[in-house]
Every structure is written in C-alpha cells, then in structure tokens.
Amino acid sequence: MKCALVTGGSRGIGSAICQKLAEDKKYHILINYQGNQEAAQKTLEEVVRKGATGEIIKFDVSDAEEVKNVLSAWQEANPEAIVEVIVNNAGITRDGLFMWMSLEDWNSVVNTSLNGFFNVTNFFIQKMLRNKYGRIINMVSVSGVKGTPGQTNYSAAKGAVVAATKALAQEVAKRSITVNAVAPGFIRTDMTGDLDEKELVKLIPANRFGEAGEVADLVAFLASERAGYITGEVININGGIYS
C-alpha cells in the first residue's frame, strides 16, 4: 500500500491537497488533523468520492512524543504500507507586533511549523531512503520568503523551513527523494477569512486571491513522478505579489 500523508489535512489548503492527490488514485491518503474531526471526516468522504482510499490519523505535529507514538502504532498496524509522499502543511498563526509578542505565541508557531516538519519527516526519512523514492513537500508562505510585518514568528518559522528544505534536498537527492517548498500568497481559506480582501487585492498584480485548488494542483505535480528533477526549490504561488 503506497501512502501520502498530509498534515493539517482537514481544512483549507490541506483538504484541497488531500482531494487532489485522491484524483490520481495512486495513493492511500492519510489525513492528519489535530482538532476538527468533523472537517477531517468531510475531507475523507471527498477522498473516497473521488475513488481513492484514505483514513484519518490524529496527532499534534508539534508534540514529538505523540507523533512518534501515533505513527509507530500506525506503521505496526500496516507493516506493508510505504509512505512515499509527505506534505507538511500543518501550521498556525499567532499574529501581533513583535514588541508585544508573548513567548507562548512565538513558541507555538515555531513548534507547529518548524518542529512539526522535523517530527513528521524525521520519522519517515530512513524508510524513504531505504525505499529509494520519496516526495517531501513543505508548505511555507510568502511570509517565509519576504517576511510580513505582524508575523515575525510565522515568518521566522516558515523561513526556517525554507532553509531546511534546501539543505535536506541535497542530502537525499541521490536516492530519488525530492524536497520542495510551496509558498502561497493570499489564498481564500478559513485562515484568510478575516482579512480585508477588497483592500489587499490592490496589492496583488493578478487582482484576486488564489484558490486552495490552485495550490493543490501545484502540490500534486510536485508529488508526482514527473517532478523528479525538481528539488530544493521554493515555488511561489501568489499572483505576482512577490516576484
């Protein structure tokens, strides 16, 4: 059984990625979530409706012990399963000016995006190397590439994942494992629901917010065999806001 794991796969961009990967019918989709079981269930229903198989797997990516325990138990229950694709999508924001930022808001954002990348990817990397094949896609952000005021914590976390992407890509390329980052700009999801779209659109050359499905299309391509010579890249998908 070949599997694709999407962290934070229950809603928004994560859910769109699960559904897009399901369309190829190549992978059993592992939908990770932390809090919203109902949303995870809905995503699973869509995956099945598209003709793929899948399951929900609950853990907090920032909790190293929990990640190890849950994934170890899953691997023991599915000894034949091979995770070929990892999409590190789980992330949270705790926005605010740096001078007023609490240590908790700093740590929670860094732990989810950066340590979450480590906890999940590190669990599977040796297996991927033995298997001599893999696709690792890290969801970063325009904030991690250009920096966004009011998001010093988020920009730091995503920027660190950008650097980790480039380093890890060089370590594992010989074994046909690619590691890339996808950096969305303003995408219409729950996460951007509170933003003033009318005002922000003026900053975007394409004159609109992106759709989660457009990001999912890019991720699905990077997860495919056709993208085997693309690695260590940060691909911006932002309507020209930062180019």
Rank of each mutant, 00 (worst) to 15 (best):
residue 1 M to P: 04
residue 3 C to I: 01
residue 5 L to F: 05
residue 7 T to Q: 09
residue 10 S to K: 09
residue 13 I to D: 08
residue 14 G to C: 09
residue 15 S to T: 06
residue 19 Q to K: 15
residue 20 K to C: 08
residue 21 L to P: 03
residue 22 A to K: 12
residue 23 E to I: 11
residue 26 K to E: 14
residue 28 H to A: 04
residue 30 L to G: 01
residue 38 E to P: 00
residue 38 E to Q: 14
residue 41 Q to R: 06
residue 43 T to D: 05
residue 43 T to V: 05
residue 48 V to R: 05
residue 49 R to I: 00
residue 52 A to K: 03
residue 52 A to N: 03
residue 54 G to T: 02
residue 57 I to L: 13
residue 64 A to V: 01
residue 66 E to P: 00
residue 67 V to I: 04
residue 67 V to F: 04
residue 69 N to I: 04
residue 71 L to S: 05
residue 74 W to T: 05
residue 75 Q to W: 00
residue 77 A to K: 15
residue 78 N to P: 06
residue 79 P to Y: 08
residue 80 E to P: 00
residue 82 I to V: 13
residue 82 I to F: 13
residue 82 I to D: 00
residue 83 V to H: 05
residue 84 E to W: 01
residue 87 V to H: 06
residue 91 G to W: 07
residue 93 T to H: 02
residue 93 T to C: 03
residue 94 R to Q: 14
residue 97 L to N: 13
residue 99 M to Q: 14
residue 101 M to W: 07
residue 101 M to N: 08
residue 102 S to F: 08
residue 103 L to A: 13
residue 103 L to P: 01
residue 104 E to K: 14
residue 106 W to E: 07
residue 107 N to R: 15
residue 109 V to Y: 12
residue 110 V to I: 15
residue 113 S to K: 15
residue 116 G to L: 11
residue 119 N to W: 12
residue 119 N to M: 11
residue 120 V to F: 14
residue 124 F to L: 10
residue 128 M to S: 11
residue 131 N to M: 11
residue 132 K to M: 09
residue 134 G to T: 08
residue 135 R to K: 15
residue 137 I to Q: 08
residue 144 G to I: 04
residue 148 T to G: 00
residue 149 P to V: 10
residue 150 G to R: 02
residue 153 N to I: 05
residue 158 K to D: 02
residue 159 G to A: 02
residue 160 A to R: 00
residue 161 V to H: 02
residue 162 V to A: 00
residue 163 A to T: 12
residue 167 A to F: 00
residue 167 A to N: 04
residue 171 E to W: 02
residue 172 V to L: 01
residue 173 A to E: 01
residue 175 R to H: 06
residue 177 I to T: 04
residue 179 V to A: 02
residue 179 V to N: 01
residue 179 V to C: 01
residue 185 G to Q: 07
residue 186 F to E: 03
residue 187 I to T: 06
residue 188 R to M: 10
residue 189 T to N: 06
residue 195 L to H: 04
residue 195 L to I: 08
residue 196 D to N: 14
residue 196 D to A: 05
residue 199 E to M: 11
residue 200 L to S: 08
residue 201 V to N: 04
residue 201 V to S: 03
residue 203 L to A: 12
residue 205 P to V: 13
residue 206 A to C: 08
residue 210 G to I: 13
residue 211 E to A: 14
residue 214 E to R: 14
residue 215 V to A: 14
residue 215 V to W: 14
residue 216 A to S: 11
residue 216 A to L: 11
residue 221 F to W: 15
residue 225 E to T: 15
residue 228 G to C: 14
residue 229 Y to V: 12
residue 231 T to V: 09
residue 234 V to H: 11
residue 236 N to V: 08
residue 238 N to P: 03
residue 238 N to T: 09
residue 240 G to V: 13
residue 241 I to N: 07
residue 242 Y to L: 12
